[in-house]
Design a protein around this nucleic acid. Structure first.
Lengths: 222, 222
DNA sequence: CTATCATATTTGTGATCACAAATTAATAAT
DNA sequence: ATTATTAATTTGTGATCACAAATATGATAG
C-alpha cells in the first residue's frame, strides 16, 4: 500500500515515532483506512522508510487507544465495529462533545469562525459530489475546529480517541446511501457561534452527532 | 525506589510490557505514586529486572493516556493536577460513570454483590483508621467492581484512563483533612443494586463522584 | 566561598539482532 | 485433486548498541 503519498512529509523537528503516529491518525481520521485491513510492523516501517522501533511505539499507542487491534495474533488490523461498541461511542460522544463545544465557544475568534465557514463550504461540496472521503475529512475538521479552540487538556484528547474508533467505519456508508441523504447541523452551529449562544451551540452539536450516528447505525444493521 | 515488593509477581503468560504496564497502573491507581515524582526508563527497567524495551512500551502508553508526563525533557513524571484538568475530569466522570454503572447493573449477580459489600466494609475500615492508601484502593475496587460487570468495551477503558489521571492526586488529601470527613454513597449504591433500581444506582454514583471530587477540589485550592 | 566553564555521565531515540511462535509454502501420501 | 505433514519464511517481543542531546559533576578562576 502506498502510504507516503497520502501523508505529510516528515518534519525533522518531530521524532520519527510522532511522525508515524500523526500520519496513521491522519489516515484513520480521513477515512483512508477501512475496517479490517491489516498491517505488520515491518510493513509499515518499510512504507515510512524507518525502522520498526518508531512504528511499534506509534502502533501500540493506537492499539491502546482502541483504534487498531492486535487481534488474531501477529497482525495489526483496523478495529471492526460492533453494535455494542457503537452504542457506547454514541453515548460517549453525546455526553462529551456538546460540552466540549460549549467550553470552546468563548475562544472562537472571527478568524477561526471564518475558517469554520470555509470548511463547511468544502463539506457541502463533498456532499453534493458524493465524495465520502472528503466528507469525512471536512466533518472532522469542522468539529475539531470548534473543539480545539478551547484547548481542553483532558476532554479534547479523549474525544479524539472516540473519533479514531468510528471514523474508519464511515467508509461503510459509501457503499450504501451515499452522501445524498446526509444532513448536518453545521449551519445552526455557525449561527450559534456568531451569536455567542452557548445553549444553541450545544444543541446544534448534539443534534449533529445524533444525526450522523443514526446514519452510521443504519449501515451497521445491514 | 523498591517497586517489586509492591507489585504482583510476573505471570509468565503475559508479555513483559504488559506486566510492567499493569504494575505501573496498579501503583498509580492504588495511590503509591504521588504527583511529581519522576523516573527514567532505565531506572524502571532495573526495578523490574527487564530491559528498557518493555518499559518504553508501558510508559509510553501511560503517557498517551495522560497518566504520566514526559515533560521537562528526558524525565518521566507523574502528571501534576491543574484546576483546568480537574474540572474536565469531573465533567467527564459525571457524564460517563453513572451511565456506565447503569449499563452494568443487570450483569451484577449475587456473588459480585457480596464482593462489593465486602469491599465497602474494607473501605469503611480504611476511613475509620485514616488509611488513605487503602481508601484509594478500595474505592477503586468498589467502583470498578460495578463498572466491570458490564464489560463495556469502550466506556470502561475510557473511564479507567480518567482514574489513572486523578488517583495520584488523592494522596494530597492525606496531608489535609485526612479520611474523617469522607462521605460515600456506596450504601445507597448497594441498596440500588439489591433493588435492581437503575435510576437509584445512577443517582448514587453521581452523588458519590460529586462528593469525592469536591473533597479533592478543596485540596487543589490551597 | 561563589561563579563559570569544561568534562563526564546519563538520558531518550532509533537501529539492529536473536529468538520463539505463528503463518505460509512446499512436499508427500492417499 | 485433496489432505496431512514438514520445511521455510515472517511475525512480534525483548535485548543490546550507537548516538546526540541534556544533565550532573568537577575543576578552575575570581
Amino acid at each position: 500500500m502506498d502510504i507516503l503519498s497520502k501523508v505529510e512529509p516528515r518534519d525533522l523537528k518531530l521524532n520519527a515515532n510522532e511522525w508515524v503516529y500523526n500520519s496513521l491518525c491522519q489516515l484513520i481520521l480521513s477515512g483512508e483506512f477501512v475496517p479490517g485491513i491489516s498491517f505488520t510492523f515491518r510493513g509499515i516501517a518499510n512504507s515510512f522508510g524507518v525502522s520498526t522501533m518508531p512504528v511499534r511505539e506509534a502502533a501500540n499507542r493506537l492499539i491502546s487507544e482502541g483504534a487498531l487491534d492486535m487481534s488474531e495474533k501477529r497482525r495489526i488490523t483496523v478495529s471492526q465495529m460492533t453494535q455494542s461498541k457503537f452504542d457506547e461511542l454514541k453515548v460517549a460522544r453525546l455526553n462529551l462533545e456538546p460540552h466540549l463545544a460549549g467550553l470552546a465557544l468563548n475562544h472562537i475568534n472571527s478568524k477561526r469562525l471564518n475558517l469554520l465557514i470555509n470548511i463547511d463550504k468544502n463539506l457541502d461540496y463533498a456532499i453534493s459530489t458524493g465524495n465520502v472521503v472528503d466528507y469525512i475529512k471536512y466533518n472532522y475538521q469542522f468539529h475539531f475546529g470548534i473543539y480545539e479552540a478551547g484547548l481542553s487538556p483532558v476532554l479534547l484528547p479523549l474525544v479524539r480517541t472516540l473519533w479514531l474508533r468510528f471514523s474508519p467505519f464511515y467508509r461503510i456508508v459509501a457503499g450504501r446511501a451515499g452522501t445524498q441523504t446526509m444532513k448536518d447541523f453545521h449551519k445552526s452551529a455557525i449561527d450559534a457561534i456568531k451569536d455567542k449562544d452557548s445553549v444553541a451551540l450545544i444543541n446544534a452539536i448534539h443534534s449533529d452527532i445524533l444525526e450522523g450516528m443514526e446514519m452510521l447505525n443504519e449501515s451497521l444493521n445491514e
